[in-house]
């Protein structure tokens, strides 16, 4: 009994606890409902959807819609499925995330540890780029991509996403490195490490949490982007989002809802994967013990 009374300041009563859990459960169910509907309908024959209850479990389980969405569904004019577009997206998102994260880290490093005249103004301008709406850059960017010979290509999309993401990644890393002890950099300088070796041997190994945050942010934004994808891609470089739209919007024949659901889940899987994988590293305190403590 004494243990309980000691803890009353921070613990809550049984009733409150139950209330909290019930509320959380209700919200969780509410948010999970669309996913559940998509999942159960993606493993049903089309007839069961058009003929019956969307909420019912399938009478006949089938993975046919998934196979169709992946490799044979009609997208645009070709019956290719989503596969080539999924590959396009991967080819776009991986370099774009890697380059923008690395450049953001370098920018943050320079802006905090190698201060120079006008650095705050420069950072202010980069910050400003976070507030520019997508629509404003469309036409100038199209012109620029044309001049660079990258119009309608995957490298062109990578370029667009790197440029657009740089403001955010710089902001994240600058703020993280601002709290990074400058004495570590000075110690490394005396030890004889140069600009890049201080970056790769000292700062980067201690940047785990902020790299995770930046990668999640950039990956989600770039993977889910539709506007740049539809504006700057060609037939052969369309990303997943644009292809999914084409699949769902195609006007020929009956609407294959089960295939659409499967395609939509396929399109969402990579972001889910990134959250689950990198989320584990999210909370680790990697800075412990660098300075006094």
């Amino acid at each position: 009994m004494s243990a309980v009374s000691q803890g009353t300041a921070v613990s809550t009563g049984r009733f409150t606890r139950v209330l909290i859990h019930v509320t959380l459960l209700v919200f969780a169910l509410f948010y999970l409902l669309p996913l559940v509907v998509m999942l159960i309908n993606s493993v049903k024959p089309l007839g069961e959807i058009t003929g019956g209850n969307m909420m019912a479990l399938p009478k006949v389980w089938t993975i046919q819609p998934w196979l169709e969405a992946w490799s044979t569904a009609q997208i645009g004019v070709q019956p290719t499925g989503l596969r080539p577009y999924f590959i396009n997206s991967i080819e776009m998102v991986v370099p774009a995330v890697a380059i923008s994260t690395l450049m953001g880290a370098l920018n943050g490093y320079v802006l905090t540890k190698w201060r120079f005249r006008g650095d705050t103004v420069l950072f202010g301008l980069m910050l400003f780029s976070c507030f520019i709406p997508f629509q404003i850059v469309l036409i100038p960017m199209a012109r620029l991509l044309g001049l660079m010979g990258l119009a309608g290509t995957v490298p062109g999309l990578i370029f667009v996403h790197v440029v657009y993401g740089l403001g955010f990644t710089t902001l994240y890393f600058r703020n993280y490195y601002a709290a990074f002890p400058t004495e570590l950099v000075r110690a490394a300088q005396i030890d004889g490490a140069g600009f890049f070796r201080i970056f790769t041997r000292i700062l980067l190994p201690l940047s785990g949490p902020i790299i995770v945050v930046t990668v999640i942010w950039q990956f989600t934004n770039i993977w889910n982007d539709f506007l740049f994808g539809s504006s700057f891609s060609g037939q052969a470089s369309q990303p997943m989002t644009v292809a999914l739209n084409n699949l769902v919007q195609s006007s020929t024949g009956v609407k294959a809802y089960n295939v659409h659901f499967a395609g939509a889940i396929l399109a969402a899987l990579p972001t889910l994967f990134v959250y689950i994988v990198s989320g584990r590293f999210f909370v680790r305190g990697l800075m412990a013990g660098s300075v006094k403590g």
Partner: peptide, 28 residues
């Protein structure tokens, strides 16, 4: 700084948190 043949001990110690004691000592 690295060409002056000096060594410095900082108030915060400034040990590299990602390295072991041995690596900290031999990094220079």
């Amino acid at each position: 700084p690295s060409r002056r043949n000096i060594a410095m001990v900082f108030q915060s110690y400034a040990l590299y948190p990602n390295m072991t004691v041995a690596q900290n000592i031999t990094f220079g």
